[in-house]
């Protein structure tokens, strides 16, 4: 996972937090929908990282979009997260990013 994380840290430069919260058509995602979607993540992600499941609390929107793209394209391989990524379209990703943007600390 470490290698994947380092690689994605470089890729993450490619998408800014400001871009991350937008849908493909340029309109902003719905943070309220994002809050609903984020409930799903709590089934596996704790506030603190465990050995195999990193924390996503306070995750930056740009980094989040990049990571999801990497699970979606299997640059990062993890069947459970790929399954999550597959279930999230542009609408959902923008919504989650918009939600994470409201939670920056």
């Amino acid at each position: 996972m470490l290698v994947a994380l380092m690689a994605s840290a470089c890729f993450a430069e490619d998408i800014t937090d400001a871009e991350a919260v937008l849908r493909a058509d340029g309109t902003p995602g719905d943070p309220e929908y994002g809050a609903y979607l984020a409930q799903e993540c709590a089934a596996c992600h704790l506030a603190e990282s465990t050995s195999a499941v990193p924390s996503i609390a306070g995750i930056e929107p740009g980094y989040f979009r990049m990571a999801m793209a990497e699970y979606g394209s299997r640059i990062r391989e993890n069947a459970a997260m790929e399954n999550v990524a597959r279930s999230l379209g542009d609408e959902e990703l923008a919504a989650l990013a918009a939600y994470f943007a409201t939670n920056q600390h």
Binding site: A43, C44, L46, S51, A52
Partner: peptide
Amino acid sequence: AAEGFGWYEAMTSD
């Protein structure tokens, strides 16, 4: 296996 342990902690805390 490690993911399964992580899931248990997250699920019960959720």
